[in-house]
Design a protein around this nucleic acid. Structure first.
Lengths: 267, 267
DNA sequence: CGTACCGTTGATTACTGTCAACCCAGGTGG
DNA sequence: CCACCTGGGTTGACAGTAATCAACGGTACG
């Protein structure tokens, strides 16, 4: 849960009662070895998942073998919120590294959402951010060159990893093969390899033993038109969700105006 | 609201009390001429929107002018659910045709979600479907040829329009230029034109005065690897959201087991 | 020490982009 | 009623990015 809390605490003001509620969510930890399927197409999920450690991908394979990675799931990411609607999974989720996953029962989770507006908001924010990342992936695939796609993705993953870990490193441990990158970026592994080596030669990135180093983030960001707006990294205003004064019985653990002070700030 | 109700009623069992709640949502109707911006990048939305009539697109333009359409908004589609998190819009929404839009106040909407589990579920389902459509767009852009992208998008739009209108036509009125299609599909207008004319010659589609006719849907679907699973067109099971027996005070208009019968069916 | 997996590089092909001309329908105005 | 204009759409010639096919090299591991 730590990674999710890291992520959240940077962007939202959560009071102690609510941190306690989050801590008390009853979870089961499950681990998978690298390359195992966590969710399969067509399954109806009964649970939500939060990545605790390791990387996973959501992907789809067409009948003729073409594979597209839809998004990467990093520590702190929640997935299958769609389980709440009890729908069939339309993609497979597979671990990339060894992973540990927190499993949350859907019914219990829905109850939790009812008890606290702040918690609803937290998860809602996470869902909005995820969707936003999907939209950016669409722009990446539709309108960027190979070099831009690679640089842009690396910057995104770096930002997200730092958010999950509560760090701000220039290094990015990247447990992905050229095939993975190609399948995420709509390219072939050969072309990814070629393009990355060109980027290495022009000093945009360095790479050694699975770790990417981006020395001049500004420069890479300029070249790739990377802009963090879509990650919604600003402080949140949760007042929309706070309970009206007349109905505090819905929220036993918080009072209606607890977050009145959390106006949006231009971090 | 009719289009949304059409869409919803095909996939969910909603009881009369809840239909009434939906009908009583207080909305304001706003109309825009073709080509006007409805939501601009960077704005913080205070409202939700439901498309009532006409088409709109969500899109983003890079600094150098490259433009990507992220998704199409058809009648019955809800947008800016992210307004609930009070976040800045990361894309612009623009009308394609003249449109009429229902505007719903966020606060009031959040209240409504609290009063009925069925209503929460309906909107949740819509949100999940939307996200699913985004994921399919990613696969389309990443791993499909020009011909497949075009055919696949046309089939999706046809299915969605029929869902919104409650019809099952072979015709699809398509108010999009080649430029729009190109910007949605990550191609150039010239190539879209060429590819569509090839598709016309091979009898995959017909086109006259802005209306596409897909005579042999099966054939086109086979060629484009189109599969409707991602649209989640099956009956929903809302029991996850139904209130537990002990807390019916939260849901004055419905009792806890009203939807016990809506098991998922293999339509 | 050989196998397996991954990354790299070269040669060639092909799909899609670019630039530019032309066409056509619809609306406007003389 | 017809010349004119405008915004799509189409077509051709050519260019360029990325895909394909294939060989080779390095590192990990049994």
């Amino acid at each position: 849960m730590q990674a999710f809390k890291n992520r959240l605490s940077q962007y939202a003001v959560i009071n102690d009662d609510n941190w306690e509620l989050i801590d008390n969510i009853s979870t089961k930890t499950v681990t998978y070895r690298a390359g195992e399927d966590i969710v399969r197409v067509g399954e109806i999920a009964e649970t939500l998942f939060i990545v605790n450690k390791g990387w996973a991908v959501r992907h789809r394979t067409l009948e003729d073998g073409r594979r597209q990675i839809v998004n990467f799931m990093l520590p702190g990411d929640i997935f299958d919120l769609q389980a709440l609607a009890c729908l069939e999974a339309d993609h497979t989720v597979t671990s990339v590294t060894d992973v540990s996953i927190l499993v949350i029962d859907t019914r219990e989770f829905v109850q939790l959402l009812r008890t606290s507006g702040d918690i609803s908001s937290s998860f809602w924010w996470a869902a909005v951010q995820e969707e936003s990342i999907l939209r950016e992936q669409i722009v990446r695939l539709g309108r960027r060159s190979a070099k831009e796609r690679i640089g842009h993705l690396l910057l995104e993953l770096q930002r997200r990893m730092n958010g999950a870990m509560g760090t701000n490193h220039k290094q990015l441990p990247l447990p992905l093969t050229r095939v993975d990158l190609a399948d995420a970026l709509g390219l072939t592994p050969v072309h990814v390899s070629r393009t990355m080596s060109a980027m290495r030669h022009s000093g945009l990135i360095e790479e050694s033993r699975g770790v990417i180093l981006i020395d001049d983030r500004e420069r890479l960001a300029r070249i790739c038109h990377f802009n963090t707006d879509y990650l919604h990294l600003r402080r949140l205003d949760f007042s929309k969700f706070s309970m009206p004064n007349g109905s505090s019985h819905i929220t036993p653990h918080t009072n209606g105006k607890a977050n009145g002070s959390s106006r949006p700030t231009r971090a």
